[in-house]
Design a protein around this nucleic acid. Structure first.
Lengths: 202, 202
DNA sequence: GACACTACCGAACGATCGTTAGGTTGGCAA
DNA sequence: TTGCCAACCTAACGATCGTTCGGTAGTGTC
């Protein structure tokens, strides 16, 4: 009886125990918060005992660190892929749209992992944040370069504010946009359009 | 010696015990998170014993509920005040700027109370969120009305997306803008300018 | 000068937390 | 067939959590 559950899980779910923990934990952290989610809750979600999680992860903090790293890798990869797919002579608004769409697509396809950066990261333990900060900085640098290239009229402060405001706008979508109601590309267009041309022309 | 501390606090700090708890708790919730902040930490910050907090508040949840209500009242009042101060024939971008500036000013002057809505609210206990939702909805309705008035070219979905993206942009400022580096009115101009005229013209 | 009341304190409660120690099992390698 | 190892288990640890109970010191009232 005890033996059956393991075998049954193996056949019905190809996801390994480790990946399942990562995914379920990411979703729980996202919806309930890090401190609000106990290891016993995570264990319940993956049909395990709390102690079993320690076979795969060193600690609860290490679990969160890995989740945040997966999320940051997803958006970083998406940014690079969008840049690679753009024609060399793409217009400024096209480039902006492509990268916004890529960010949003990553945000919703690796939803829990990337969205965790928006809501979980600020309250993560200091050591966890410190471990993830370099990768976050690198990703932000991509956007700083993009925005100064396509809006040469902005000075450094203007670029910073534009980037941060755009991040704020994009990342807040995880709290209100439902992918069932439209593509992330359309959502990107709905954000980039007014932003590029101005509300004055909408 | 024990008696002195009470007298000394009374004279050096005009803030009552209750208000002090509210303010310190709001700041701690904001910087550390709700679940991450224990009542013992709050008690330490106000030089009290944990049990004493229960003389002023029914529970930790009730304390957070009151903090969120103070914050929502601040932005609601600021919105109404901005509307009242505007000349009847103010231009659309002027109206937008005035309300963005009012929101940002409230965000930073009642910093911890209003900012708590951005970062603490999503993970607050369900009962706490339910108690605050009506006032949040009412505030959002103000913005929906404003945006549809000044950007008549947008349909309902467009207004919603514009409002949510603008909220995302404004509220994210609590995580990166330092009021020491400039006025909230300038910050509002830096956000509204590109948004209204478009990045294309920046 | 007795009384009530506000504002606090000291000590403790049961519950829950992250974590650890020490098994057990099922499948693969030799 | 034996031995090994990854993947789990049961049980419990000490720490910390929100909360409660029963006080006490100071202040104003009659």
């Amino acid at each position: 009886m005890v033996a059956m559950t393991t075998a049954a899980r193996k056949t019905t779910n190809p996801e390994t125990g480790r990946d399942r923990i990562l995914r379920e934990a990411a979703e729980l952290f996202l919806t309930r918060g890090y401190a609000e989610t106990s290891l016993r809750t995570i264990a319940d979600a993956v049909d395990m005992q709390p102690a079993s999680i320690y076979h795969h992860f060193e600690s609860k903090d290490a679990l969160l660190t890995e989740i945040l790293e997966i999320g940051m890798e997803a958006v970083t990869t998406a940014f690079a892929a969008a840049a690679a797919e753009l024609p060399p002579n793409a217009s400024a608004p096209d480039r902006l749209h492509a990268h916004v769409a890529a960010h949003l697509e990553a945000l919703f396809s690796h939803h829990a992992f990337t969205a965790a950066h928006v809501t979980v990261f600020p309250f993560a333990p200091a050591e966890v944040r410190a471990a993830t900060v370099p990768k976050r900085d690198a990703y932000e640098a991509n956007w700083t370069a993009l925005l100064s290239a396509i809006a040469p009229g902005l000075d450094d402060d203007g670029v910073s504010i534009a980037r941060l405001a755009l991040f704020g706008a994009m990342n807040s979508t995880v709290q209100w946009f439902d992918p069932a109601n439209g593509s992330t590309s359309d959502l990107a267009a709905a954000i980039v359009g007014p932003l590029w041309n101005g509300l004055a022309n909408s």
